[in-house]
Simulated assay, not measured.
Amino acid sequence: LRTPSGLSEGEMAKQMKVKKLKNLKTLDSKPGVYTAYKPYLNRDEDIIKQLQKGVQQKRPSAAQNAILRRYFLELTQSFIIPLERYVASLMPLQKTISPWKSPPQLRAFVSQDFMKTLEKAGPQLTSRLKGDWIGLYRNFLKSPNFDGWFRNRRREMTQKLEALHLEALCEEDLQQRVQMHSEVETVDLVLKLKDKLTQAEREQLPVRPGTVAKLRAHIDAVILALPEDLQGILHKPSTP
């Protein structure tokens, strides 16, 4: 049988096989780790030379590993510091925290705003490594790793806001405030303070030492200032 080009099927198969062989690339015989991943940062020749020198000098493996771990730790810190700095800026100022209002909310993480900070406060301040840092950050912000990292940081910062709010409450003269409000409002205050106390103990909020005990004492004092029937409802604290 002949194909439209005039070649037999056997000749056609042989020609295709030759073309495929021509397209094959020879494998690099040098030892190393190969990957299809395209790096964003340039190769650091200094660390490579340092490790190669260690091999030549028969440096112990533990020492080589320590050098490599320190290198990647410093590189990771250079990468994460700009993120930490920007996330810290999302925290409301402490002076905006009022004991009689709900704690303020963290501002939203806006990727574009963060990227703008990299020009003057990026990893170039702490790392000599060159490359596409911007592309690396863009890729990281879209990854599950960033989502997990930011959720943890957001939880920590939210707890810090709750702790500052709790400390602000403890600094207030609650007895004076009770005198200015009705019994219903005072009962409502006690219930809210109890909720704050439960939250502080359950979530182990990062409050100053003695804050929880001080809040508990405030609650007891406010309850004792109420009529006895209300004290019973609010679980009157035991007196010595």
Rank of each mutant, 00 (worst) to 15 (best):
D113R: 09
Q159E: 12
E185F: 06
K192Y: 12
C170L: 04
L161T: 02
E171H: 11
S111G: 04
A225F: 13
L169C: 14
L166G: 12
R128P: 03
N152Q: 06
G148C: 05
H181V: 07
L125K: 15
K196I: 02
L191K: 06
A200P: 05
D220L: 08
R153D: 07
R107T: 06
K192N: 15
L129F: 09
Y137H: 07
E203P: 00
K116G: 04
V187C: 11
P209G: 03
A221N: 11
K196R: 14
D188Q: 07
K192P: 01
G122K: 08
P209V: 00
Q124C: 05
N152A: 03
V178R: 06
L226Q: 10
P227R: 09
T158C: 05
L197F: 10
D220T: 07
L174V: 06
D195M: 07
H165V: 00
K196C: 13
E162C: 02
L129K: 11
I223R: 05
K192D: 15
K130L: 03
K196L: 06
V184A: 11
Q179G: 13
K120S: 09
L166R: 09
L169I: 07
Q199T: 05
I223S: 04
I134E: 11
P227H: 11
P206K: 06
R154L: 07
G131L: 14
L205C: 04
R177F: 15
A213E: 13
V207G: 09
A221D: 13
E185H: 03
L141C: 09
R177L: 15
K192L: 14
L224G: 01
E119L: 10
Q112P: 00
F150A: 01
E228V: 02
R151E: 12
K214E: 12
